[in-house]
Design a binder for these strands. Structure first.
Length: 134
DNA sequence: GCCAACGTTGGC
DNA sequence: GCCAACGTTGGC
């Protein structure tokens, strides 16, 4: 099983909306590195739901419920989407500032490459972040 | 194939 | 609102 982090601007789509809906299509990714990550996802993989721009914190956990398929919002057929379901909110959100201050996350790609919207999370990084979330 | 110009993302 | 990082486009 692999771990990931998915970014969303909460005024566009928030974790609360995902909790309310039960499942969503993670579409609109138009970056090649992010596409490779989407393609590498398996059903059952877990992901942190991160609020970018507003909040700048990981707020919840979700699960990949359907592996990569053609993005319904992409007419060219080149881009892919996955489906995700919520698992639970984090007891305490983990802010970007807190992650930057954590030595164990020095190599975390969220920090290293801030523009990437789909980020792989190593096992040890996952453990660290969940511990920070209480 | 190189590189300047430009657009987008996202933190500050 | 600004800027850094990065990706893409297009002229040569």
């Amino acid at each position: 099983m692999s771990y990931w982090l998915l970014k969303s601007e909460p005024d566009v789509y928030s974790f609360d909306q995902l909790l309310a809906e039960g499942e969503t299509v993670w579409n609109g990714v138009r970056n090649n590195a992010a596409r490779l990550h989407l393609r590498a996802m398996n059903v059952g993989d877990e992901a942190l739901f991160y609020h970018s721009n507003i909040g700048k914190e990981a707020v919840g956990l979700c699960r990949i419920s359907r592996e990569a398929y053609p993005d319904p919002t992409d007419e060219s057929g080149q881009w892919v989407a996955v489906s995700v379901q919520p698992i639970r909110k984090l007891a305490r959100p983990v802010t970007l500032a807190a992650m930057k201050a954590e030595p164990a996350l020095a190599e975390f790609q969220l920090i290293r490459q801030s523009r990437l919207s789909v980020v792989p999370v190593r096992d040890d990084e996952w453990t660290t972040i969940l511990r920070m979330a209480g």
